[in-house]
Design a protein around this nucleic acid. Sequence first.
RNA 1: GGCGGCGUAGCCAAGCGGUCCAAGGCGACGGUUUGCAAAACCGUUAUUCGUGGGUUCGAAUCCCACCGCCGCCUCCA
Length: 491
Amino acid sequence: MGFRLYNTLTRKTEDFKPLEPGRVRMYVCGPTVYGHAHLGHAKSYVSFDVLLRYLRYLGYAVTYVQNITDVGHLTDDADEGEDKLERQAQKEHRHPMAIAEYYTRSYFEDMDALNVQRPDICPRAAGHIPEQIELTQTLIDKGYAYEVNGSVYFDVSQFAGYGKLSGRQIEDMQAGARIEVNSEKRNPADFALWKKAEPNHIMQWNSPWGRGYPGWHLECSVMSMKYLGTTIDIHGGGIENQFPHHECEIAQSEAANDCPFVKYWVHHNMVTVDGQKMGKSLGNFITLKQIFKEGHPRLSRTYDPPAVRQLILQSHYRSPIDFSDAALSAAQSGYDKITAAVIKVRKALALAPDRAADANILMQLNAMKEKFEAAMNDDLNTAVALSVLFEMVKLVGTLPVEGVAKATLEAIDNQFRTLGGDVLGIVKDEYATAGGSDDALLDHLIGLLIEQRQTARKNKDFAAADAIRDQLAKFGIVLEDKPGGTTWRLG
RNA sequence: GGCGGCGUAGCCAAGCGGUCCAAGGCGACGGUUUGCAAAACCGUUAUUCGUGGGUUCGAAUCCCACCGCCGCCUCCA
């Protein structure tokens, strides 16, 4: 069975077949950069990172585009309200583009920490104003859009497919009480392609309709088609953007190009914190930087970035995930266990005897790999895939401390690297066991102390022996007495 | 009001018609090991899948009703 992926457009899990054999064009809605990335961003971009990694693992040549929204995203999706970047710029007394730059760097810093692979192309909305104007003009020319008083709106009544992604009817939405009344629009569901700028609006550009700035939905259509073509394989985003954002993207793109915009729509679910939606007003809004190093009132400690990744992968991307201190703590422990097993294998590798691999272990590894792939093929069941990693951890745990053939250890290490590393991004290529360049020196120094403690233990001077162990523990160094001797690690 | 989802052990979570007296992780408990620990290993920890009906030879998995929770359509990914 090949790779199967749930398609929101058809509401079914489908066999994945790219438009062009061997090649995948994938676009994911990127962040609006007016604040530090939070748990929601982590869930989103880790989820799509695993999709990307698995496609590459399967041998596809993937081109991955993820935009950076630095203009046009308003505080109110009904085309009212302020531009999010401009509002933040006022708060911080900086230029909107400085805000965009600062938070873009912050975003990538956090994503790097989460081991999220960088997209191939990260286009900025503000860098694609001419293209957005062009698309707007095309839509006017084709009768899908109309200009009113310097703003341009998409006329949803002209596009028959409007609502096919979200399952909404235009009539239903009118019945809803939440539609803002905008007298410029012919239909309340119409959405802005181009907005007229007031003189005090900082980010504004010349256009055929006067000074203005682009509507939020436009950028994704424009950049997707510019870098990936008029029809792409995968478009990803959060479930909350199904409507109106993605619905509007489809309308604009298909109206302009007369061809399907996206083959597979992939949406991940949302994040809650302590059982409630995460919101600034609820006091449970947690940024990644707070988790990693600053701390947060809801958390008892800080957690390593991979622990967050681990927690995300323990549930399905289409399920909501509840972040809590307990859940994070459990994920951290699980992650540490995997890491310890990988390090054990790599250390053993150095002095392993050069013999043929254990056929039985190779067989087990192969069975695990098949289980892993079956799980990932089934719409990215990362929870089961992760459980396979734990099966490998268990296998490592049962291996004798010495005498395992080098080829066996290599096979295990390789599988950790491909499945745990390449695909899940949980296993690292290198672990700094004692902090970089001081490694050898530290090893020698601690070795001396271990020797002293051994002497004390031989002499049954356990008080002295325990004192050495306790002292080292204060620096986070844990001693472990094993049959072959005492080893140390950073706790 | 419209649309969607969820309820599985102390906690997180997979499973979505038979191979489930239900994977995996965390935690807890007992054991092996240890001078004591730590780590590791072995074992125990859901006769049951929110409740009540129904369909079926067979249901955690399908249908109906009810209860509870959550999300989107506002801030927010």
